[in-house]
């Protein structure tokens, strides 16, 4: 992948939490990049390290107990992990903006929408209050708040969940960021409202030419808005590729397991193909491949060595020995998959 054209480049990121009950390896070797204007999806189950990846980029890891123990986060070529808290604060909301899952906890309940929006604009841009107010109205219009001129005086609790998320998006967009990180922005919303918000994200991106990192547990959201996608499992990437390639030619056993276990609205199956077992405890990860205890294809070597993320074709990387040509060919002659009879 062309490194120099990336807006954001995360390399070998490791974020751990040092708790009384042990070291939680929340993020344990993540690499990805985002080009200007594109949408990268990060998809995985709860606890797989999606939010901690985002918070690491933004310099918002609670410390203690958390610490970024290794890696680089290059934004426009500069390593954000070397920046001071003050420099990071200036960057957040200006160059990099974020939207979280629960808009109620990220909006200040005692301030009107106007106050919050205008203050954010003024904090980052040299405008008069009047100009900032006009810009605020414009933004609320843009994100589809009807009757913005009146509604701007409301408090967050006077808005519905979907409208609050729109306000959050307006605040995030207020300073024309070049990167927006959205952490499960539609998870708390109903499906008809989710459709509205996803539509809004697509429109914004087209109009504003902004890169987007979309964190979600829903492969449908990935199919809907993402150009490329990283599938995460227990703190590590399992597969990293273009969205179309993932759906047409996904290779990692976890990716395939996920796709098969989800009921679909277009076809009615007799029985879902569930993935057996459950995600590992991040304080005591299995040796070898972290998916091995649940993997139908696990081989002897999977229990001993940890596969690396390797390209299987252009723009398609998989972290699995089955797709690591050298090893899988050797093994496939003399070994039957360990878990092949499990259902």
């Amino acid at each position: 992948m062309q490194i120099d054209s990336s807006l954001l480049e995360v390399r070998n990121l490791h974020t751990h939490f040092f708790t009384k009950s042990g070291v939680v390896k929340a993020v344990d070797g993540v690499d990805f990049s985002v080009k200007p204007g594109e949408t990268l999806g990060i998809v995985g189950e709860s606890g797989s390290g999606k939010s901690i990846t985002a918070l690491s980029i933004l310099g918002l890891i609670p410390s203690p107990p958390g610490r970024i123990v290794d890696g680089e986060v290059l934004f426009k070529g500069e390593d954000l992990l070397r920046k001071s808290p003050k420099e990071m604060r200036a960057l957040r909301g200006k160059e990099i903006a974020m939207v979280f899952q629960d808009p109620m906890t990220s909006l200040n309940p005692v301030l009107t929408v106007e106050r919050q929006l205008v203050e954010t604009i003024l904090a980052h841009e040299k405008l008069t209050r009047k100009q900032a107010f006009d810009r605020a109205l414009e933004l609320l219009d843009l994100v589809g708040i009807p009757d913005a001129r009146n509604r701007i005086r409301n408090y967050p609790h006077e808005f519905s969940g979907g409208m609050r998320q729109r306000v959050m998006i307006a605040i995030a967009l207020s300073c024309n960021p070049s990167l927006l990180i959205a952490d499960e922005p539609t998870t708390a919303l109903d499906v008809t409202i989710q459709a509205q918000i996803l539509e809004l994200f697509k429109k914004m991106q087209k109009e504003l030419d902004m890169a987007l990192v979309m964190i979600t547990h829903d492969l449908g959201v990935v199919a809907e808005v993402c150009d490329r996608v990283m599938v995460m499992y227990a703190g590590k990437p399992a597969e990293y590729t273009e969205t179309k390639k993932l759906f047409d030619n996904g290779k990692h056993p976890y990716t395939l397991g996920l796709m098969h276990s989800i009921p679909k609205i277009t076809e009615k199956k007799q029985k879902l193909e569930a993935i057996s077992g459950m995600p590992p405890d991040l304080r005591s990860l299995p040796t070898g491949c972290n998916f091995a205890p649940r993997c139908k294809f696990a081989m002897e070597s999977c229990l001993h060595a940890d596969p690396e993320l390797k390209n299987v074709e252009d723009n398609h990387a998989v972290r699995c020995f089955l797709h690591d040509k050298v090893i899988s060919e050797e093994e496939s002659f003399n070994e039957t998959p360990i878990g092949s009879e499990k259902s």
Binding site: V191, A195, D218, G220, V221, F247, I265
Partner: peptide, 14 residues
């Protein structure tokens, strides 16, 4: 009709 149409796509080609 609206509810069903709001469900995200099953794959990017749909």
């Amino acid at each position: 009709q609206a509810l069903l149409s709001a469900v995200p796509k099953v794959n990017p080609h749909q």
